[in-house]
Design a protein around this nucleic acid. Sequence first.
DNA 1: TTTTTAGAATTGGCTTTGCCAATTACCTAG
DNA 2: CTAGGTAATTGGCAAAGCCAATTCTAAAAA
Lengths: 246, 246
Amino acid sequence: MKNRRLFWRIVEKIENLIDTGIYPPGSRLPPERELAENYGVSRPTIREAIIALEVRGRVEVKTGSGIYVVENQAAENNDLKISAFELTQARALVEGEAAALAATTITEEELAALHQTLVDMETEASAESADKEFHLIISKATRNNAILVAVEKLWLLRGANEDIIDAYKGVCNQSSPKRMEEHTAIYSALKERDANAARAAMHLHFKRLINALFDASEKRALEEIRRKTSENRGRYSLDHLAPAHN
Amino acid sequence: MKNRRLFWRIVEKIENLIDTGIYPPGSRLPPERELAENYGVSRPTIREAIIALEVRGRVEVKTGSGIYVVENQAAENNDLKISAFELTQARALVEGEAAALAATTITEEELAALHQTLVDMETEASAESADKEFHLIISKATRNNAILVAVEKLWLLRGANEDIIDAYKGVCNQSSPKRMEEHTAIYSALKERDANAARAAMHLHFKRLINALFDASEKRALEEIRRKTSENRGRYSLDHLAPAHN
DNA sequence: TTTTTAGAATTGGCTTTGCCAATTACCTAG
DNA sequence: CTAGGTAATTGGCAAAGCCAATTCTAAAAA
């Protein structure tokens, strides 16, 4: 978890952003110089991280052009269609129990690392990867690798589906203060070693998220109707009968 | 062959030297500065090559000490080690919640199919597949494909590890009557649409299973092992599971 | 003589600065 | 509107320097 060398941390963060769908397959990463500034490290360090990602097969570097996320090599096409709602509900159940379990097994080091993610989350650039880090630390703190595998599997689902990426992106951007608040609540419960409080806080976190998803989906449906309406408005317009008057 | 980036050529050369035995496993490579001079490149380039080799698992870097050829490449254990205890605990958590969820969404057809698995389980030959069928039907009944994916993933883990296969085999054979009983209890709770009862019944099922695993492991173990086991009994206990709170 | 320890040398970790080459974007000329 | 050339962007690589961890060495203490 605490990789000594600096570039490993960058690798971790960028990989999270890829898995989360912030950097979708085929997209271009920010230029090295920009990444260096974002993460507060030098360009050579960024280069090291990029090379590590390249060896891992996550990105591809094109000289003079940019760094590109490699196309989805994992044919995760389990032809099972999973909505953002289902995923969120599943995460609530699994991660809720994980939090409860972790409350009795989490170490001081992990609590410190958890707290660090709260700090990182203030920064716009690393907010998303800090989010993933937060949930992953808790899963690891259960001392149960099977649970960790399950949680990671659910994270992969998030990045595998275009709709889910969009849905989460829309929701997360507009509610980061609440997310901070909820993460803090979860952290506090874990710090107090209160299993029930941790579970409840985690459930609350996802409850808010799923409600935000509903709102967003509603808004999108409304916009769809509006679009169709204006389309029809154009199609059935009688304006062509008169000279333009704009 | 013609890797355009410079560091790839260095990677290639060094890897050859390792494979040929010029740099035997465990030995230390020349310092970065020296390598840089040898290959006529700058130190950052050497660092990039070393990092690529590190990600590939060929070398290991120790700060202030040197770069070492990794000992046993065959001992590449990328997979997390998961014990039967961990797996069972994880299943208890996930499938417990799945059962609670399914209680409100399960259809009459699924209940009938579930009942059929109880019948099939009487037959020695089809007991195992009926068991799996039983748990999968419940997962599907949640109407949440993400949960289904998670449960299936855990089931895959079961087959992936030799130790887990053995542990489960030993336990299942000797306690099929109890398993029948527990499955029936879960079925009844689902039939009654009682979410809390379903969760509790599922937990009880796994609780008995995990205890049976401990007993089996205890029986097999030496005196020294027995001490550790009772230590673990606390760690993997399901006692922290609280009653539902919805 | 043996052990301890302090400091010097070695070695990786990371930054800064700078320039080159490939690619891309843009803008002007035809 | 297209074509071609130029400027900006972006990755590739080098050089020099400082810091921190480790190791080596040799002097000091037991």
